[in-house]
């Protein structure tokens, strides 16, 4: 316990320094170590407190005091060393709590981004999550889907149309086979390597899922 809160800082750094769009795997080991550090601080704090209380009781036997609370304050005031120890232990726990919460909150933000950008949970992200985080993801997914649904919510899929609309049609290239898909112009086979012109709003879901890529080469348009 030489460096108070150092492990918590490491934990937070790990997620903050990671690539913004990716989720590092949940560091259960380090989280557990931070929890044990907190427990140790708490035990030490309790020990200091009970030692002070013991002293007081022996003092109280000699002289009458008004209330327990005042007596406790008096006890710590008599011993600045104990008071400082208490404060340090409590502040360390509080700091570790903040660090852990920030760690989880950072991961929550990234999980939410996954929902907004990919619509479904990629394998690589799912592996990086703890079971509780997976549960959070699915609940958040349900919540957002419900809010965007026609019957109970606003009736718009807010995860689409992130960019303002440009042309009605976009030139795209198929980068992953997706078989036959139905478009407003009729069924169309999406085979790898094909260059197509599609209505922008119909191409968008495929662009997000990585089947299509925008083709910016002018000669194909």
């Amino acid at each position: 316990m030489s460096a108070f809160g150092k492990r918590g800082v490491e934990l937070l750094k790990e997620v903050v320094n990671h690539e913004p769009d990716m989720l590092p795997s949940y560091n259960e080991e380090l989280v557990r170590l931070v929890f044990s550090e907190i427990d140790e601080h708490y035990v030490q704090a309790q020990r200091v407190l009970s030692a002070v209380n013991c002293n007081q009781q022996s003092q109280q036997e000699g002289e009458e005091e008004d209330t327990g609370e005042q007596a406790e304050g008096g006890g710590l005031q008599d011993k600045p060393a104990d008071a400082v120890a208490m404060v340090i232990h409590y502040e360390s726990i509080a700091r570790n709590k903040r660090l852990l919460l920030s760690y989880i909150a950072q991961r929550v933000e990234r999980l939410k981004n996954v929902r907004w950008q990919h619509r479904e949970l990629p394998e690589s992200v799912a592996e990086a999550c703890s079971p509780q985080e997976l549960e959070f993801y699915h609940k958040y997914d349900q919540l957002l889907t419900k809010h965007m649904s026609k019957h109970e919510g606003i009736g718009h899929d807010l995860t689409l149309d992130i960019l303002p609309p440009g042309d009605n049609f976009v030139a795209v290239r198929v980068v992953r086979d997706a078989g036959m898909q139905l478009f407003s112009s009729g069924p169309l086979g999406l085979h790898e390597g094909a260059c197509l012109r599609l209505p922008a709003d119909e191409a968008q879901p495929f662009l997000i899922s990585g089947v299509l890529k925008l083709d910016n080469r002018k000669e194909f348009i």
Partner: peptide, 23 residues
């Protein structure tokens, strides 16, 4: 409604992951 549900969801998550393990 969304705000309330989201707050509850986030609160549960924080409790499950961190807060319930603290003193």
């Amino acid at each position: 409604q969304y705000c309330r549900d989201y707050f509850v969801l986030l609160g549960r998550h924080f409790h499950g992951m961190v807060l319930d393990h603290l003193p």
